[in-house]
Design a protein around this nucleic acid. Structure first.
Lengths: 156, 156
DNA sequence: CCGTATCCACAACGATACTG
DNA sequence: CAGTATCGTTGTGGATACGG
């Protein structure tokens, strides 16, 4: 069952399309690769080569995705140097990027339920209590969990 | 800050890429148009022409998206006839499609916060209480709200 | 008039080659 | 070795034309 508009449906012409936040976000995270880069950031990946390997796409694709996300202020590129090594860049989520956590978890949760045949490959639990983390749609004031309070467990 | 793996990072080779639910979902909802069709379903759109007009894409694009979503069992196509009119199809979310609500709201919520300059064009409230609906990541047992208990208000 | 098939344009990916 | 430019290929969208 759909949601219901309190405004007249005829009034929809004014806001739809570009005004809708969903459309704007999809312009930004539009492609699969871009979003998988965000996923990897949440999973702790910071180095170019690791993005390439773990996402399983080509280096140019990662390069493009990183630049796009950088220009959208979802990730930030900062130079770093390991002892005795040359300067390289590392890529980390900005505060805005961190806020994509509900999107990531909602996608994973749906996939786990409807695409994985039975058991999901990963589980997200609270680091301290071990309780299962869920994304939920509610009017209640639930205690929000931050991404660094979440631990990822491979399904046994 | 990223989440932390309890499994060794070196073990990641086994599950990443195609095993990840996020990647599988993105194969399915991958494109912007496909996802906007889902959005429209939640907003109550059921007829082909309305999808075309409200999403602002061409008819063939809608046709393709609908078929893709149908084959993924996210929406179902059912024939109907208005009094004295020819039979047409209407498109509604399946139960699996309904479960995409957290994904939609998470996207909208992020866009409202980070892309809209200030005030979001739409607000989602509980139909009975009028309380603001939020997507949250939590280990608590919050009361889940179903999509038909949600009303949409245009920002004033 | 609803919905699709067809054709062309463009954007994103992979392979390769290149720069620091 | 990290990261990018270039080029050929594929897939996704729009315009058009067509079938029920």
């Amino acid at each position: 069952m759909p949601m219901e508009f309190e405004t007249r449906l005829a009034d929809r012409g004014r806001w739809r399309a570009d005004a809708c936040s969903a459309a704007m976000v999809l312009d930004l995270l539009g492609t699969k690769t871009v979003f998988l880069v965000v996923r990897e950031c949440f999973y702790g990946t910071t180095r170019f080569e690791d993005f390439v390997e773990r996402i399983g796409v080509s280096a140019p694709a990662v390069s493009r995705a990183l630049r796009q996300l950088e220009s959208a202020d979802v990730i930030a590129r900062t130079p770093y140097r390991e002892a005795g090594a040359r300067t390289r860049d590392e890529y980390r989520l900005t505060a805005a990027g961190e806020d994509l956590l509900p999107v990531l978890l909602a996608l994973v949760q749906w996939g786990d339920t409807h695409l994985q045949d039975g058991r999901p490959p990963l589980r997200f639990v609270a680091r301290d209590s071990g309780d299962e983390i869920r994304v939920c749609v509610t009017a209640d004031h639930a205690r929000e969990v931050d991404s660094d309070d979440i631990a990822i467990r491979a399904a046994r």
